[in-house]
Amino acid sequence: MTFDIKIVGLKKSFGSILAIDDLHLDVHEGEMLGLIGPDGAGKTTTLRMLSGLLIADEGVCLVGGKNVRSELSAVRQFIGYMPQRFSLYPDLTVAENLRFFADLFQVNKEERENRMKRLLEFNRLSPFSNRRTAALSGGMKQKLALSCTLIHTPKILLLDEPTTGVDPVSRREFWDILKELRASGVTILVTTPYMDEAAKCNRVAFIHNGKILLVTEPEKIAHHYKNTVLEIVCDQNVKAAKILIASKQFDSVHSFGDRVHLSSHQTSEQMKPMIKNLVEIENIQINSMKEISASIEDVFVELLN
């Protein structure tokens, strides 16, 4: 039995809205695949169909080689699913929540206590085992949720935006835990809206409007991008971006926070003077301008266009 995921021709609509549109995706055994996309792209819907919480209109989900539709109860024995929304009982303590989920999966008592001890240590929650879940910080809640998901030692993990709303330190810690899990052979499919998190996976799948646009390794992202990318830092980002777009000299111009990325098939030597001319006429001060390798954002933006 290989603990992998195969999605073939998946379709799902809610009323008149087509949420998942002919989606194909393979997750190999033992890998960590990041499913990245904007809100409403279909990330949650995909995970819910893989865990049998939603029923696909068309297509097949094979999880661990078993069809989710027809062998759901077998599938649910070896998957661990962590919903996007925190879904533990706030009035139960850390230990009680763990115990409850262990019992749901009918882990026997001795084994249960063993695993609880290990998971609490692993996730550094041991000192809080008797604390009500409601009184935990956001990061601790997510670690507890992950622990509850792991209590039956699943072979395949489906994590839906596990670090949304969690502070940066806890986020890093959480991803370190995922790395450990992957090292122990667990197959992980994780959705995220954060580009930096996606880069920590060994493969990344871009999803938009219910379709997978591209599946690649983070290191190879630049390969998918033939153009030159320039990063400009100036005092009036938005205005600069508008001017550069209006000039129609570049393939794409996007402002990312405090900087503008623009790409073109030209070389950076050709581009730099053009940019300078266009922008400085409008009294915008350029602080820096350098060629960078394409990031996940750039690829994504290009894919979207």
């Binding site: 070896f78 019992d103 009918q106 026997n108 550094r124 030692t153 370190d176 450990e180 122990s184």
Partner: peptide, 28 residues
């Protein structure tokens, strides 16, 4: 670092009867 990496591996290894229902299990 978070934990010795064998911690979680042991979690999996130490459970040969992984998906077999145990006779002492508590009814859900």
């Amino acid at each position: 670092s978070i934990a010795p990496s064998d911690g979680i591996s042991a979690l999996h290894k130490g459970n040969a009867l992984l998906y077999q229902l145990d006779e002492f299990m508590k009814p859900r």
